[in-house]
Amino acid sequence: HNGKLCKLKGIAPLQLGKCNITGWLLGNPECDSLLPARSWSYIVETPNSENGACYPGDLIDYEELREQLSSVSSLERFEIFPKESSWPNHTFNGVTVSCSHRGKSSFYRNLLWLTKKGDSYPKLTNSYVNNKGKEVLVLWGVHHPSSSDEQQSLYSNGNAYVSVASSNYNRRFTPEIAARPKVRDQHGRMNYYWTLLEPGDTIIFEATGNLIAPWYAFALSRGFESGIITSNASMHECNTKCQTPQGAINSNLPFQNIHPVTIGECPKYVRSTKLRMVTGLRNIPSIQYRGLFGAIAGFIEGGWTGMIDGWYGYHHQNEQGSGYAADQKSTQNAINGITNKVNSVIEKMNTQFTAVGKEFNNLEKRMENLNKKVDDGFLDIWTYNAELLVLLENERTLDFHDLNVKNLYEKVKSQLKNNAKEIGNGCFEFYHKCDNECMESVRNGTYDYPKYSEESKLNREKIDGVKLESMGVYQILAIYSTVASSLVLLVSLGAISFWMCSNGSLQCRICI
């Protein structure tokens, strides 16, 4: 991952900044910058967002509201009850120091605090018919004063009620008058409520006091790749198909172990950190130390980045220098085999997901714990399936590479015959000098055995068991695999060879 928040398929997220979902939807004055928000790819909250409900109280069923919003990608904020005409018999300019803005008392931008007009609070009834052709999110509140005197001074009615009804919602609220500790300079409380109004449905408000009335509502448009994440990451000019709280993932790998919460087309989250597919040879310690064997393909974004291909070729060293050249036929066979294998694994496992966190309130801790156990169970199954699949494929890959290298080895052996000696570690020792032209003939299969047989015969008789390297004779190393990324691999195959001279070296080696 890149540690950044990015656009998702070209669409920017909605960053709530210092506000949370509650503050944004109710219209906390400190969240005025969010009022123009219309569309987004996903919503970003920060872990310690401080601006929620400015007048103390709870947004009821907040967790369910977050779940609903996680599939919303755009909205239209509109005046559901026009301020100047909807409440002619009531005062609608209630403000509070708890919702101060720029040093002055204020109130929510989407709600109206209705109080008595003169000395009376006549029963009010108002309704709205949803003609938007889509779901409408309606929010309101109920004020709970701290004393009967406060109730009387604001609403005149000691036994007030609030009723809200639609086809799918029907509740009646009565204020709970009680002494409470002071929070944000208030002994009173406000509880906030919401409902989704279906197209064509009607919502009716009736009250004799204590109503925090809707002013603006939201017509919602769903987008199934949307979601809500909690993150401290910063926004950058970048684009992605998959976003996590820790950063964007741009990967076609089937798995990731970065974060379980994802938005967009994302690899499946697994616990494993070692889900690797081999593309090189079986481990040979001396070669492995030099980083030549054991190439791997990573299938977990965050564990290993991208696929690494092994390729086969020849390396030689003689009086004229040293050089490398790919054996294109065996390399292409290996590439085709690995590509098919990788595609097979991805096809089997690479279903892209959006995974969002589930919200539970403080009273639902047991449910949250149960949900976590269920999620953990599914996660263990996914991890096991992934590891088992790759384990089985790896064994076949190792066998496949062994065969490829063996074929190259036999190709060289059949040409050199007794003009060189096998020394048991995949290397041959020449009994004759071999210049670049000679080396090329070994690589392309045109090695002239009779041409060098007499010199080889004489050297075999002279050496008589002495280690060949100390006599200045020449080696050919018969097994060799270097490691390159897919891009470098293609470039390498396009070149005939490249040279690395070893000044004054008397050794001649050709490596497979």
Rank of each mutant, 00 (worst) to 15 (best):
Y447E: 05
A233G: 00
D376N: 14
Y480A: 08
K358T: 06
I258E: 02
L416N: 07
G313H: 06
K329F: 11
Y269N: 04
V356P: 02
P260T: 02
D380C: 14
L392M: 15
C238V: 06
K462E: 00
N257G: 01
Y480H: 14
K433R: 13
K358F: 09
A484S: 08
L493S: 05
K373S: 04
M439W: 02
P450D: 09
Q475P: 12
V473G: 10
E387N: 11
S322T: 11
G426E: 07
M439H: 11
S234V: 08
Y449V: 12
K462C: 00
L363A: 03
D375K: 05
V345N: 14
L493R: 02
G445T: 11
K462A: 11
F360Y: 14
M500F: 00
A326M: 06
I296R: 00
G310K: 05
R460T: 12
T262L: 03
F360C: 07
A478N: 04
C508A: 14
K421E: 13
N250C: 04
E437R: 09
N333S: 11
K457D: 10
Q328K: 12
D376M: 09
D464Y: 13
D464G: 08
N418E: 12
L458V: 14
G494E: 13
D376K: 07
G310I: 05
S481W: 10
F299N: 01
R271H: 13
K274I: 05
G321V: 01
M471T: 12
E393I: 05
E455W: 12
R460F: 10
G291N: 10
L370C: 08
E410T: 14
E395R: 11
L391F: 04
D376R: 06
C238W: 08
K341S: 06
M277G: 06
D464L: 13
A484N: 01
L391H: 05
K421V: 08
L416M: 09
Y449I: 06
M439D: 05
K417E: 04
L416C: 07
K406H: 11
S286M: 09
G321W: 07
T383M: 11
E368Q: 15
L281V: 15
I381D: 05
E319V: 00
Y289A: 09
L408T: 04
P260W: 14
V473Q: 10
Q328T: 02
A233M: 15
V405G: 00
E301Q: 07
Q507W: 05
F353R: 10
E368M: 07
E455M: 09
V261P: 00
V390Y: 03
A495F: 01
S234L: 13
F299W: 11
K411A: 15
S272M: 04
R276H: 10
E395D: 10
Y384I: 10
K341N: 05
L458T: 12
I476N: 10
Y474G: 11
T351W: 05
V405H: 09
K341C: 02
V488L: 10
Q328F: 05
A334E: 08
N419V: 09
Y289N: 10
D399T: 10
N404K: 13
V442Q: 05
V405P: 05
A355T: 14
L487W: 13
N394C: 04
A297D: 00
G377P: 03
S456K: 08
N239K: 03
L468E: 01
I287W: 00
V491R: 01
L506H: 03
Y269D: 02
S492P: 05
C501L: 13
C501D: 00
Y474V: 14
E368V: 04
S486M: 07
L489P: 04
E347M: 11
R509C: 03
M349E: 00
I476W: 08
N407I: 03
H316C: 15
L408K: 06
W499N: 08
A386C: 09
N459C: 04
A420G: 12
V412F: 09
K365Y: 07
V342W: 01
M235C: 08
S322P: 01
K268P: 00
P254D: 03
L388Y: 05
M235E: 06
G424D: 09
K372C: 02
E265Q: 13
A420N: 02
Q332C: 07
R290H: 00
I476R: 05
A233P: 00
A295Y: 02
S414E: 12
Q328H: 15
R509H: 11
S322D: 09
E347D: 13
L391I: 10
I296A: 09
E455I: 13
S234G: 14
L493Y: 14
N350T: 13
P285G: 02
R443P: 05
E359D: 12
Y409T: 03
P267H: 00
V405A: 06
K372F: 03
S485V: 14
Y480G: 08
M235H: 12
E429K: 11
C511I: 14
G504M: 03
N418T: 15
G291S: 06
K411I: 11
K348G: 03
S502C: 01
G504L: 06
T262N: 09
N239L: 02
A325V: 15
A325F: 11
H432T: 12
L253G: 00
M471I: 09
N444F: 11
R396T: 13
A334Q: 08
I381A: 05
Q332W: 06
V345E: 05
K406Y: 04
A233C: 08
A325Y: 13
V405C: 07
L392W: 13
V442K: 04
Q332F: 03
D380T: 08
G280L: 01
M307T: 04
W382H: 11
G504N: 15
V342M: 12
A248C: 03
N404V: 05
N350S: 15
T482M: 10
G306V: 04
D399V: 09
K348L: 11
L391K: 04
G357L: 10
N333W: 00
M500T: 09
K358M: 09
G472Y: 09
E410M: 08
E469S: 13
W311K: 08
M439T: 13
A355V: 14
K341M: 15
N444L: 12
E265M: 12
H315F: 14
N318G: 03
N371P: 11
I263K: 06
R290P: 05
S441G: 05
Y452E: 08
E429V: 10
V488H: 04
K274D: 01
D464Q: 14
G465A: 12
A386H: 07
G291A: 14
Y384K: 04
A248L: 04
L458S: 14
G323T: 11
I300Q: 05
I510Q: 02
K406D: 14
L477H: 07
V442E: 07
W499L: 07
R443V: 11
S453Q: 12
V488K: 00
N361F: 02
D402S: 13
Q317F: 08
N371E: 07
K358D: 01
T339Q: 14
V356K: 02
H236W: 02
R282F: 07
L363F: 14
S481C: 09
L370E: 09
Q328G: 00
M277A: 05
N232K: 10
N503C: 04
F299D: 04
N369A: 13
S322I: 06
G377E: 10
I496S: 04
K421P: 04
W311H: 03
R282M: 06
V491L: 01
G298I: 04
T273E: 05
Q317S: 14
K467V: 11
N340S: 07
K451P: 02
N436L: 00
L379A: 06
N419F: 03
D375Q: 08
D309M: 05
R396K: 11
I479V: 11
S481V: 03
L379N: 07
V345L: 12
K462L: 09
N362G: 06
E393Y: 08
K457N: 13
W304T: 01
S344F: 04
C238Q: 03
F255L: 07
I423F: 09
S492H: 07
R396Y: 07
L389Q: 05
E429C: 00
G377V: 05
V374S: 07
C434W: 09
G472E: 09
G426F: 07
S231P: 01
H315D: 03
L363P: 03
V483A: 12
V356L: 12
D435I: 03
M349Y: 08
M367D: 14
V356G: 12
